[in-house]
Design a protein around this nucleic acid. Sequence first.
DNA 1: ATGATTGTCTGCACGACTTGCGAAGACGGC
DNA 2: GCCGTCTTCGCAAGTCGTGCAGACAATCAT
Lengths: 149, 149
Amino acid sequence: MKSPAALIEAYRSEGRKITPQRTLIFGLMHENTTHPTADALYEAASRAMPGISLRTVYQTLGELAEMGEIRLINCDGGATRFDPNLEDHHHVVCSRCGAIGDVEVRGASSLRPVGARGFAVDEVGVVFHGTCASCRGARKGSPAQQANR
Amino acid sequence: MKSPAALIEAYRSEGRKITPQRTLIFGLMHENTTHPTADALYEAASRAMPGISLRTVYQTLGELAEMGEIRLINCDGGATRFDPNLEDHHHVVCSRCGAIGDVEVRGASSLRPVGARGFAVDEVGVVFHGTCASCRGARKGSPAQQANR
DNA sequence: ATGATTGTCTGCACGACTTGCGAAGACGGC
DNA sequence: GCCGTCTTCGCAAGTCGTGCAGACAATCAT
């Protein structure tokens, strides 16, 4: 996603208002690599601005998604996660702790579906399921660290 | 997934009982390529056996998933879909009508995540988002055909 | 046959996540 | 500073899935 300053500009140019809530969320999302859920973001936001509404977090994330500034991820059946990284990338998902990481996948864009006649591909998504480094370290016990859920 | 007859055998060998409800669901899932949701399956089941409970459908699908006879799919944020196809395959998702199709993807298994040090990959999933043949035919109007949702 | 045991089905209630809605409040141009 | 418009907030409601308990059925020992 754009920098908070650039987002503010983008918002203003669309006739939207700049509110402390939005500014805060822009900041929290910027270069956030944890793929937070709305709830995780809400908790972080609440720390900085007690009283902010979960509704507002959903609202703002929805706007950002609509503007194409963030992407939505739905790997497991749980809550939607938000990804500010707009570069061409894919994801690794730890089935132990639920953490999601960004990865590059060489050759991903040249993959083609075989057996779907007439299907026009817009976008390719690759998801690797497995175990992350931290969880592999702590094999037996509980997950290395709980993901934001 | 196995044939209904083989599933009945598998159930019996685990000390589970063979009930009309289970037999029905086995039959509805067998070689079903529509990736139905629990609700879609429930509706189909209700037609054949009025009074069957949605709870039972969820229950049975859960058992099948646990036994590894079907796979769960979560491409969009919506309801979980169930896939009886256990072969190595991937999916195309029509962003217009929501339909999901099975496809082969050459080279998918040799994909590697770059930039996730120490991540042990168990499974790779490739999802193509785009527009299916039917929806491309009926470009302007409503989706070619509503997916089971 | 009787009664105990075990497993299944069903309906309901609840939990997680998300969105719709209306009232109250804040932003930004004038 | 004022006012119109856009936002925020809280609550209600909707969707999807699961936990639970009671009714029921099949199995087994006595």
